[in-house]
């Protein structure tokens, strides 16, 4: 069972009170494997960047704390998942992509083909010119048009 408590202060920061009763303000939850295994292994890091608590599985926590952490993670992690490619401005880089993501429609500039990284068999991680990472979980799940566009860059 958790031997610590969490609360959000008026500045919107998370405060952790550990087993010995010490308060740590402004902690941040960090996923150890945000892509490979997001559900397991979450560390609570102090504002100074030291690990305070290691949580094996988010689901083991009491609901209230879990929701707090999930909220905080949702506000920290930004990796839109591309669900479809609408259009690309050209097939040679740099090129502007119009995409649909799980966070709404977006457009970004792909600086070079090297910014597309393979993760395992069918997943891709695409970094745009501002180092925002877009994820394609399964290239085979995209529609034909998207796959055709994408194929030109792989």
């Amino acid at each position: 069972m958790a031997d610590f408590t969490l609360a959000r202060d008026s500045y919107g920061k998370l405060t952790l009170t550990d087993a010995t009763g010490v308060e740590h303000r402004g902690i941040s939850p960090v996923r150890a494997f945000p892509i490979a295994d997001p559900e397991h292994g979450i560390a609570l890091m102090s504002a100074e960047g030291h690990e305070l608590v290691w949580i094996e599985r988010l689901g083991d926590l009491p609901d209230e704390m879990r929701i707090l952490l999930e909220d905080e993670i949702a506000g920290r992690e930004f990796m839109p998942s591309i669900t479809a490619l609408r259009d690309v401005s050209s097939f040679s880089t740099p090129t502007v992509w119009q995409v649909e993501t799980d966070r709404g429609p977006a457009s970004f500039t792909l600086k070079s083909e090297d910014s597309i990284r393979r993760l395992g068999q069918d997943a891709l991680l695409i970094a745009d010119s501002h180092s925002i990472h877009y994820l394609i979980r399964d290239t085979r799940a995209l529609d034909r048009h998207s796959r055709k566009l994408l194929d030109r860059f792989l």
């Binding site: 919107g12 930004f78 501002h130």
Partner: peptide, 25 residues
């Protein structure tokens, strides 16, 4: 900012009144 996403906060002396988010662009 963290991991490509910035946060802009409006504070008064006691609390955070609101915040906005943006990409580093």
């Amino acid at each position: 900012d963290h991991a490509g996403v910035g946060t802009l906060e409006l504070l008064d002396s006691r609390t955070r009144l609101t915040h906005w988010r943006y990409t580093l662009e």
